[in-house]
């Protein structure tokens, strides 16, 4: 790794931190300013106004927004104590780690547990689902996309493109129901739900088949179309004609001249898929009762569980910025026009 590369990475990480701080402030402002004050959200709809006032005072919710944001940052960074855990408030919230530790996102009001525990339990399952899905999505969509893109207008392209259009336009729940009908009702070889509990009738591996299947169908067909379009477009580029007219073999033209150029546009789309898989898989998780992060965020938002929403949204933010960084590195590797400077 040369000096230019290190400088590039340091600058990117600097930008990462700035983006993160700016976005987290916006996030804090939005969640804490959403209808109903924070205190009444914590206490629920039936709280008396004197209780609300008391809590507002204890939590210093009357302070200016910027002060509260900095205090919140302090709590997350483990510098400041979280006043919510104070037993005198009488909310019955307690954390075995105490009130001051790094990564203290407060308590889930919905589950009456520390946010880190709630999220920690789910995140592993989400990562597992994402990994499995992406391991299928990338090779399948790349192979099929390239096969279609280098043969534009031929039967293989027509079939793949048509199939991809149909599959992308089907909503996830329709695909899920179809797969359930086939795998569960008709063949009876797969479980209908995937709560990822062990020791039951269905091993974990079989519980993963249907959720992964639905995600792959929803996402791979879309990525396939992007790859196909990019490859077909690259095939028409003058430099591909140059390669052809200098007498290269078709296989060499595709491998050396088309692919690397054609991969540049789809990278963004593939990374967006990872983004979505890590934080946005609401429908599939709900249908299969899969214990992932996406459905948790939905529940938290509906409940008004502001601390859990804050933590999960921050997570989504990290994923989004992180995949962008990866994307930049991929562009750097593929496109010599991008300079480190």
């Amino acid at each position: 790794m040369d000096a230019g590369m290190i400088r590039f990475l340091l600058r990117r990480i600097g930008q990462f931190i700035i983006t993160f701080l700016a976005a987290s402030f916006l996030l804090f402002a939005v969640t804490e300013f959403s209808p109903g004050t924070v205190a009444s959200k914590i206490l629920g709809p039936y709280a008396v106004s004197s209780q609300v006032d008391l809590l507002t005072e204890k939590l210093h919710l009357g302070d200016p927004l910027l002060v509260r944001y900095l205090r919140w940052l302090g709590i997350v960074a483990g510098v400041v104590e979280n006043p919510l855990g104070d037993p005198t408030i009488g909310l019955g919230l307690s954390d075995p780690r105490g009130n001051r530790y790094v990564g203290n996102f407060g308590y889930s009001l919905m589950l009456k547990e520390p946010v880190v525990d709630v999220v920690g339990e789910r995140i592993g399952y989400t990562v597992l689902l994402t990994l499995l899905a992406i391991l299928v999505i990338i090779p399948v969509s790349l192979a099929a996309g390239v096969a279609a893109g280098v043969n534009p207008g031929r039967p293989v392209d027509r079939i793949l493109s048509m199939g991809a259009v149909i599959l992308t336009s089907l909503p996830e729940f329709v695909v899920a129901v179809a797969l359930l009908l086939v795998g569960v009702v008709w063949l009876g070889i797969l479980p209908g739900t995937s709560p990822m509990t062990q020791g039951g009738r269905w091993p974990l591996s079989l519980q993963l088949v249907l959720p992964v299947g639905v995600l792959v169908i929803a996402s791979a067909s879309y990525v396939l179309r992007i790859v196909r379009a990019s490859v077909a477009d690259t095939m028409r580029k003058p430099y591909v004609r140059t390669a052809l007219l200098k007498g290269l073999k078709r296989r060499d033209i595709i491998l050396h001249h088309v692919l690397r150029n054609a991969m540049i546009p789809p990278i963004t789309v593939i990374l967006l898929q990872i983004n979505w898989l890590l934080t946005g898989v609401v429908v599939v998780e709900s249908i299969f009762a899969y214990p992932g992060v996406g459905s948790l965020l939905l529940q938290a938002a509906l409940f008004g569980d502001i601390y859990l929403v804050q933590a999960l949204t921050l997570l989504a933010l990290i994923v989004a910025v992180g995949t962008q960084l990866i994307g930049d590195l991929c562009y750097l590797a593929l496109d010599p026009k991008i300079k480190l400077g």
Partner: peptide
């Protein structure tokens, strides 16, 4: 394939786009 670039070679309009940008 054998003819192209073998017996007959070609020089193109807009040379910048006739070269592969990533190689």
């Amino acid at each position: 394939r054998r003819l192209r670039g073998g017996d007959i070679a070609m020089v193109y309009q807009e040379p910048a786009s006739a070269l592969n940008p990533v190689l």
